[in-house]
Nucleic acid binder design. Sequence first.
DNA 1: CTTCGCACATATCTGATCGG
DNA 2: CCGATCAGATATGTGCGAAG
Length: 500
Amino acid sequence: MKFEIPSNLKVKRIVFDADERSNDIAIDKLHYVCHIINRLMLRLDDDMRYNGSDYKYGVPLNSRALRKALGRRYRDTIDVLIEHGIIETNDVFEVGKTSKQYRFTEQYRYSSTKYVAPKTNKYREFSIPQGAVKIDASTFYDVRLVKRVQKMFVGLTIDVIAANSWVDKYYEEQRQVIISAKNKKAIQRKLKELVIKCNGYRESIRKVHVKEASFVQDAFGHRLHTPLTRLKKELRQFVRYDGMPLVEIDIANSQLFFMIPLLQWKMYHPQAGGGEKNTFKHRIWIGEDQRETYRNTIMWCKEVEMQYSKGLQEISFVSDACKGIVYERVAQYLSASGYFKNEEAKEEKRAHVKKYLLKLIFASPTKNYSMYNASIGAIWDAFKACYPEIGKLVILIKGVDYKAISRLLQRIESYCIIGSVCKIVNDKNADIPLFTLHDCIVTTDNYVETVEKELLGIITELIGFTPTVKRKVWNVKKTQFTMLKNYIDRISNLIRKRAA
DNA sequence: CTTCGCACATATCTGATCGG
DNA sequence: CCGATCAGATATGTGCGAAG
């Protein structure tokens, strides 16, 4: 929505001039009042009548409505407009009949209209709301499917006692670390943060336990956020489905694997697929046609395609992403060039590359994690040296809009995982428990084979290439003895408290 | 109807976490 | 880089009664 105000009206100076009331004089509020008067004035001749009495002076503005729109000290906004000779009022109201009437002064009354964009969210009535879209209102995916996923959470249980005692233990460990520091002020602050952090963990446990958490699908990446996605990794071991342990089917270097479609120039033509709705391409792109915006990107994709006439699998990035060894390859390259000073383990090197490479790919060109950063930049250079085609592609897409990559990848991911795999598996057999953690699917042991087979088949069909998947069982790592001991300690504490 | 103040409710901000 | 969530502080909004 845009404010419609007289074209010769300048409101900015009022905000500067505003004396002690300056806190309540906001530019949006001034524009809002002018907008309302302007709009109502246009309708004055037609229907601004009440009980036959004439409103010709101006337009009636109800003080309750004004207060609702402008806040408690709305009077200041009106007064300041009057003081500056922009509007005037007849100062007449009749109880039960009419409110005070307002109109523009002569200077502005007959002016043409100009449009001004609101500065704050409150006055942007028709803009897309920030943040989450509630499932009920969402049309991105089959709502019935999401409801079914929600239903599966009924069977999901968490060992509350064990999980909470894990948090207790974690708290105690972290507390010891914090209080061993020297800076007293820092200790106080960190302890406060730790309490908040642990309360958050406990809350996430409770949310899984009572199943009251929200299930939302965000409007940007179309990901599905559930109680599980917000659960700390270490606490997943305490989750069971109908008493059975759960198994996670994870796609190796998923974000990079999902980059493969971006190398295919046809992806940038949502209409080129024959116009059918609800296809991969339609789901991923927001705009109608990206051909113009991504002209340079498309040209590069075509060039790459010419170069690899036998198929994209010839590109080392594509084959490595399918094998799930991109991070390892980059780590290896860095190792050879003497990036790692100490003799780190292979796992550590991979984790290091993964942590920074994703940040580099998604980062704002002007902020931290820039490709030109001295130490981290080396990781980007290594990536570019290993995979020149995809390196250039990332730079080209980021040249259009640096936020596009993260959004596109999340959409591709969620369309594949939730929109396709979960939907098809659930349609075939509604008994299979399915939970998603963005790029991975969680199910029980007896269905792993089935789900994994479907996942590989469906993603291969969508992307054109087969990813590597990894399985991880969510089982309790601690011995039974420690758990039992924790349990006994907890209970005896409770009994002691009761007795006291 | 307008205006005001009080008390309580809701929204927003800050700085942290989780996930990729 | 993107998303959601949490706690706690603070700012803003709302309902209501009373008076003008």
